[in-house]
């Protein structure tokens, strides 16, 4: 589903390139829950941003379902990959429902009108994350953990075969972390999704992940 070939990732600033990680080869299949572990600054978030298409690879390529990520249109990418980051979202009257509904953006007309099918997907995503009772709550009134769940629900509403989560457990308590990983595991198996998660919770990763990978010295090591 995702194939990474000789990938070098990093940042471009005018003519200067800052490489974070190079020579990476890997492939991930659908129906699996992959964990990314690594020290701060090793390049976990940069790798996820590159897999989403936010950042262009410095070298090498990322193939999604056999197609080069860079050759895909904005609209096509939005139906294949969704991401959840730790950035705070809120203000402008955004409620929980509004944010989850925005997950349907790739499937809507330019006026953004939700059809009955879209509403059903949104309701299902809210239910799955236990957010149905909070749907009319403003985003800024939620705790960090609840806000994180909303972004995951948005990602579910986007109905992409690949979901990337950058430190989704950062703001969650111990019980919620277990619950989230359990849900992600079920989701990857039942809906045959490829879910890649970066986290520092090694014990949880080993317990729930199909594969836990450790990023170090330009390579990915499987944690047994």
């Amino acid at each position: 589903m995702i194939e990474i070939k000789q990938l070098e990732i990093g940042y471009r600033c005018k003519r200067k390139q800052t490489s974070v990680f190079q020579g990476l080869n890997a492939s991930f299949q659908s129906g699996s829950l992959i964990g990314l572990i690594g020290d701060n600054g090793v390049g976990k978030s940069t790798l996820l941003k590159t897999l989403t298409g936010y950042l262009k690879p410095l070298h090498g390529s990322v193939l999604i379902q056999g197609e080069n990520l860079e050759s895909l249109s904005f609209e096509k990418k939005a139906t294949l990959i969704s991401i959840v980051t730790t950035e705070k979202i809120g203000g402008f009257n955004l409620t929980v429902y509004d944010v989850v509904a925005l997950g349907r953006t790739p499937y809507l007309s330019m006026f953004g009108k939700l059809m009955p099918d879209d509403i059903a997907v949104i309701e299902r995503s809210l239910e799955r994350l236990g957010l149905a009772s909070l749907k009319d709550t403003l985003m800024e009134e939620l705790s960090d953990g609840q806000r994180q769940k909303v972004m995951i629900a948005k990602s579910l509403a986007q109905e992409t075969p690949i979901i990337l989560l950058d430190e989704p457990t950062a703001f969650l308590d111990y019980t919620s972390k277990h619950k989230l990983f359990e849900d992600l595991k079920v989701l990857s198996l039942e809906e045959k999704k490829l879910i890649i998660v970066s986290s520092h919770d090694i014990d949880l990763m080993q317990k729930y992940m199909t594969k836990a990978l450790y990023l170090k010295e330009n390579n990915l090591f499987e944690v047994k």
Partner: peptide, 24 residues
Amino acid sequence: AYLMVKSLNAILLNENYAANLGIN
């Protein structure tokens, strides 16, 4: 402006999320 409604809604999240939702 009315033709941009979908993009304007999406960018309320932030630019990265909007790009991930297929917005140019």
